[in-house]
C-alpha cells in the first residue's frame, strides 16, 4: 500500500518477471462505459498450481487483495479454478481485478487452502469442494455449504462429465402437481369467433385463435 500505484502493465510485469515460465498466459482487458468512457481494468494471469500461493503472497505485497470469489469451470479434461481478487480499492477509478487461473487435471483435483492468508476464503473454498469435487488441502472446515446433507456423494453440480447432476435428480416443477379436477375453461364457439374476426382487430383475432389450440391440447 505504501508504494506508488502500479499500472496494470506493471503488475503483469511484476508477475512475469518473478514467475517466468510458470505463467502460461497474462493479459489485460479493459472496458469503457458511460459518456466519458473511463476504463476499468481486468488482469488475467494463468499460472501453475504450485506457483499460485507464492503469486498470491506477491499480490499481497502490492496491496492487500479483496477476494471476491473463486469460480470454477469444467473444461472436459481438466478443471479450471479462477481466483478473482481486486486490488487498489479505495482509489477513485483505480481498482483492478486480478484473476489467477489455475488448471487442475481431473486425476489430481487438489488445491491448497488460502484461508491462512485470507480467512474470508473459507466460504468459497467449501463451495468449490461440494460443487466441483475439488479437494482443498488443509481446509479448516470441510462441511458442505449449500447442498443438503442427504445429497449423494460423488455428484458435483457444476461438473459436465459423468459426475454432474444425473437426469433423474432433476425435478421439472412445471410438470408436477397439475390439479386435474379443475373445471374446463370456457371455449369460444365457432360462430362467436366469426363475429370477433369480423370486427377485424388483430388482438381479437389472436384471442379467437387461442381457445381452439387449447382444445386440441386437452384432446391429447
Amino acid at each position: 500500500m505504501s508504494e506508488a500505484r502500479l499500472t496494470p502493465e506493471e503488475i503483469v510485469e511484476v508477475f512475469t518477471r518473478e514467475f517466468g515460465d510458470g505463467i502460461r498466459e497474462a493479459r489485460i482487458t479493459e472496458r469503457r462505459e458511460g459518456s466519458k468512457k473511463i476504463a476499468n481494468y481486468n488482469i488475467w494471469i494463468d499460472i501453475d498450481r504450485d506457483l499460485f500461493r507464492p503469486a498470491l503472497e506477491k499480490l499481497m505485497e502490492i496491496h492487500f487483495p479483496h477476494l471476491a470469489v473463486v469460480s470454477g469451470s469444467d473444461l472436459g479434461d481438466g478443471l479450471e479454478l479462477l481466483y478473482h481478487f481486486t486490488i487498489y480499492y479505495g482509489t477513485r477509478h483505480g481498482e483492478y481485478t486480478v484473476t489467477f487461473t489455475v488448471l487442475l487435471p481431473k486425476d489430481d483435483l487438489r488445491m491448497p487452502t488460502i484461508t491462512d492468508l485470507i480467512p474470508g476464503a473459507l466460504f468459497t473454498e467449501r463451495e468449490k469442494q461440494e460443487m466441483l469435487g475439488i479437494e482443498i488441502v488443509d481446509i479448516p472446515d470441510s462441511r458442505r455449504l449449500f447442498l443438503p446433507e442427504e445429497f449423494p456423494e460423488g455428484v458435483y453440480p457444476w461438473r459436465k462429465d459423468e459426475t454432474g447432476v444425473p437426469d433423474h435428480m432433476v425435478k421439472d416443477l412445471w410438470a408436477v402437481g397439475r390439479p386435474a379436477n379443475r373445471p374446463a375453461r370456457p371455449v369460444v364457439k365457432k360462430e362467436e369467433q366469426g363475429e370477433v374476426q369480423a370486427e377485424g382487430t388483430t388482438e381479437a383475432a389472436v384471442k379467437g385463435k387461442k381457445p381452439s389450440e387449447e382444445e386440441e391440447q386437452r384432446h391429447e
Partner: peptide, 21 residues
C-alpha cells in the same frame, strides 16, 4: 474500509458522476 465499486471501478454511468464512498 474505503471500498465502493461505483467509485473505484468505473462502469455504467458511474464513471461520469461525482461520487465518493
Amino acid at each position: 474500509v474505503k471500498m465502493d465499486v461505483r467509485v473505484d471501478y468505473p462502469y455504467a454511468a458511474y464513471g461520469d458522476l461525482e461520487i465518493s464512498p
